[in-house]
């Protein structure tokens, strides 16, 4: 039995071990190779890292739920961009000008509702047609991106509101607003997945759909709820990021779905559904951000980042496979 626990410990702890490795590696390597004379582990640098993790991280938490449920959502990047446009454009509306600072929560609400609506479209199509979520969201990824371009052509949509920027740049107990959002989303979704009926059923559906149906679980509504949740989280991610930046390009958020899925998979969630962890995804998000920042710190250029992350993703999944295979016989291919 000790053997089994060691394996599970290795599997669960793998992402944290990897993060520790990154921290040590970049700190040491930074001493020799860094162009700046600031230490990598500098507290401000780490706080900034958490903040920069937030946009991908918030969506990744939602994607974890979707993938545990046995689905996938490729349209998150497009939802993110469309909600950002709704957020910034609505602040420019004449009606909003009369509301003063009340315009801000209203614009946020509009953006979040947009996210919920777009998520609901995905969820309803997946539920009612029975078409695979990969195909449905591949379609909606293209469709939603089309809406982004229809909204404002190739032009950026901008609105700068200093109250909003102040809010976004605020630090409470040293943590930035975006970080707080990421932590809150992680905590709430952890409770949803581990302590509520919806979470339990989502795991059951992802693991064995037929058995879940036989237990009287209505699969469709649970999937719909999850797609709405990821829609809202993609919108929240846009709200957090664009409140500060104040300008969105129609190409923003492209490839986000892939970064998000990478983080989720690094965090140990299975592509086939039924297994995964919110905390693991949080680790996956941090690991990717550390890698980006760390490679920048030691002077590697941006193209290298993608190459290294790609290699690491494959290496991590290979390791995971080896650990999972222990004690079992698998086909050798």
């Amino acid at each position: 039995m000790t053997n089994v626990t060691l394996t599970t410990l290795l599997k669960r702890g793998a992402i944290w071990g990897f993060i520790l490795f990154e921290l040590i590696f970049f700190s040491v390597a930074g001493e020799f190779m860094s162009l700046s004379n600031k230490a990598f582990m500098d507290i401000d640098n780490m706080l900034l890292l958490l903040k920069q993790s937030a946009p991908i991280g918030i969506i990744a938490i939602g994607m974890t739920v979707i993938m545990i449920n046995g689905n996938i959502d490729l349209s998150v990047g497009a939802i993110y961009a469309l909600c950002a446009i709704v957020l910034l454009d609505s602040l420019n509306w004449p009606i909003m000008a009369g509301l003063g600072d009340w315009a801000i929560p209203l614009a946020w609400l509009l953006a979040l509702l947009t996210g919920a609506g777009l998520g609901a479209i995905n969820g309803l199509i997946v539920w009612k047609t029975g078409v695979d979520a990969f195909i449905v969201t591949l379609g909606s990824m293209l469709g939603f991106r089309g809406l982004v371009f229809m909204y404002n052509g190739e032009n950026p949509t901008s609105h700068l509101n200093w109250t909003l920027v102040d809010f976004a740049e605020a630090q409470v107990f040293g943590l930035h607003t975006a970080t707080w959002f990421l932590l809150a989303v992680t905590a709430i979704m952890w409770f949803v997945m581990h302590k509520t009926v919806h979470g339990r059923n989502a795991y059951a559906i992802g693991d064995n759909r037929a058995a879940a149906v036989n237990a009287g679980i209505r699969v469709g509504p649970h999937m719909l709820i999850n797609f709405i949740m990821i829609g809202v989280l993609a919108a929240l991610s846009a709200v957090v990021f664009y409140s500060e930046s104040g300008s969105v390009n129609p190409n923003d958020g492209q490839l986000y779905e892939l970064w998000v899925i990478t983080a989720v998979v690094l965090g140990g969630t299975k592509l086939t559904g039924g297994a995964g962890s919110i905390i693991g995804t949080f680790g996956g998000v941090i690991a990717i951000q550390l890698l980006r920042k760390g490679l920048g710190h030691i002077g590697a250029d941006t193209q290298t980042v993608s190459l290294v992350i790609g290699l690491i993703l494959i290496a991590v999944l290979f390791l995971d496979r080896q650990l999972n295979r222990k004690g079992k016989e698998e086909l050798r291919i």
Binding site: K195, Y203, A204, I217, A275
Partner: peptide, 26 residues
């Protein structure tokens, strides 16, 4: 294939059809 969620523990499998009635708050 149809009866059990193999990745779940014994308790969760046993109570699967009725957890919506076994709640305390959310």
């Amino acid at each position: 294939g149809q009866g059990l969620i193999l990745g779940m523990n014994c308790r969760d499998n046993m109570t699967l059809p009725q957890i919506s009635d076994l709640t305390a708050g959310p």
